[in-house]
């Protein structure tokens, strides 16, 4: 059965809103149906006139818009406001934590190094450490320093003296 195309169909064809299959059927009908052709030509002519009726804005209007574009152009390619905001939020939360962690690590490292250096120096001065490649620390070094002299017999003698003293006191005064 031959399809009857309405004016609305013609308008859809003119504005290319028909599906390809429907459009093919319309073109076929257009070739054989004189009445359809006349209606199509009539609407198409008016449509073409409408398309010609465009009006342009003044040059000044366009220039003003472009002046605004240039005046408000970002100086560099910058992140959008949202991106800036999110970066700020991110940094605001992370920077103090990062700084604190770094500070703790640095302080601990410096303390460790300082203690190690001091200890090493102390031990070196004390003579407990053998210098790499150097001679063994002589026992005489220790003997030269009276602080490091240690005589067990002398202590034993002193302890004995104290014990005797205590025993003497206990004999003389049993209450104590």
């Amino acid at each position: 059965m031959k399809r009857q195309f309405t004016d609305e169909d013609i308008i859809r064809f003119i504005y290319e809103e028909m599906k390809p299959k429907e459009s093919d059927a319309f073109l076929t009908a257009l070739c054989s149906d004189e009445s359809l052709w006349e209606r199509y030509e009539h609407l198409q002519t008016i449509n073409e006139d409408v398309q010609k009726a465009v009006l342009e804005p003044s040059v000044e209007s366009c220039e003003r818009v472009m002046a605004y574009v240039r005046e408000t152009a970002p100086t560099q390619k910058q992140p959008t406001t949202e991106a800036k905001s999110s970066i700020r939020t991110f940094l605001a939360g992370k920077i103090p934590v990062a700084i604190s962690l770094n500070a703790v690590v640095v302080v601990a490292f410096i303390t460790f190094i300082s203690v190690a250096i001091l200890g090493f120096t102390y031990e070196l001065t004390r003579g407990a450490i053998v210098k790499p490649g150097g001679p063994l620390v002589q026992q005489t070094d220790v003997e030269e320093n009276p602080r490091f002299e240690w005589d067990d017999s002398e202590i034993d003698e002193k302890l004995r003296f104290i014990r005797e003293g205590v025993e003497t006191i206990e004999k003389e005064d049993p209450i104590l």
């Binding site: 004016d7 609305e8 308008i11 609407l43 006139d49 409408v50």
Partner: peptide, 8 residues
């Protein structure tokens, strides 16, 4: 649209 074109 049809009426607009025809009325024109």
């Amino acid at each position: 649209m049809r009426y607009a074109l025809l009325n024109l």
